[in-house]
């Protein structure tokens, strides 16, 4: 598991940052994000919290060995869930990869909160984790196969050497008997 975190301050009021959230893409700095779709949205009529679920489509240069090994493609999709709470003035954005998620997950969380100076604090954390169960079961299978191969080869080796010794010494014995 790998962890990542960073903090930053935007010199804009919280409301401007939260309005800006919906205008982030397309962005010349983030050309890897090519599509953005809202797949679900709800406004809590009591708390006023807006929950939005989006699917982001990314194009990135995946190393060819990853594509070959995992059967992925250049298109990668991410599920993003955001909550905007105007009462507490907290906005959180959680993102998890959909593509290749059977092999590894990247769980990212971003939070925007107002600072006392009227600016906005940005906090980003991420956890990147390979699906260990998958690796372990694959490793177990590989190990079992190796053990079987080793036993097989060991048996073949034993049989082979037995033959060599028998042939060698039987021949010597025959020679001795004749002389």
């Amino acid at each position: 598991m790998h962890f990542f975190s960073q903090t930053f301050k935007y010199e804009h009021p919280w409301s401007h940052v939260v309005i800006g959230m919906w205008h982030k893409y397309p962005n010349p700095h983030c050309t890897h994000v090519v599509t953005v779709d809202v797949v679900d949205r709800s406004i809590d009529s009591k708390s006023g919290i807006i929950r939005t679920e989006r699917v982001l489509g990314c194009k990135q240069k995946t190393p060819i060995w990853i594509v070959k090994l995992f059967g992925g493609s250049e298109d990668a999709f991410v599920r993003e869930i955001s909550f905007v709470d105007p009462a507490s003035q907290v906005a959180t954005i959680t993102s998890v990869n959909l593509s290749l998620s059977q092999f590894a997950t990247c769980f990212e969380r971003i939070q925007y909160t107002p600072t006392s100076s009227g600016h906005t604090a940005f906090l980003q954390t991420a956890e990147i984790q390979a699906r260990m169960a998958m690796w372990r079961s694959m490793a177990d299978k590989f190990e079992t196969w190796l053990v079987q191969r080793f036993e097989q080869n060991a048996n073949l080796g034993k049989a082979g050497f037995t033959d060599v010794l028998r042939t060698m010494w039987e021949a010597k014995q025959q020679q001795a008997a004749h002389s």
């Binding site: 975190s5 998890v96 969380r109 939070q111």
Partner: peptide, 23 residues
């Protein structure tokens, strides 16, 4: 991850301005 409700705020221990990695 249903994420039907806002997640809790990250604990202060999780916050640092650098990236780190551990096994």
């Amino acid at each position: 991850n249903p994420l039907r409700d806002p997640p809790p705020a990250p604990s202060p221990g999780e916050v640092s301005s650098s990236s780190s990695s551990s096994q």
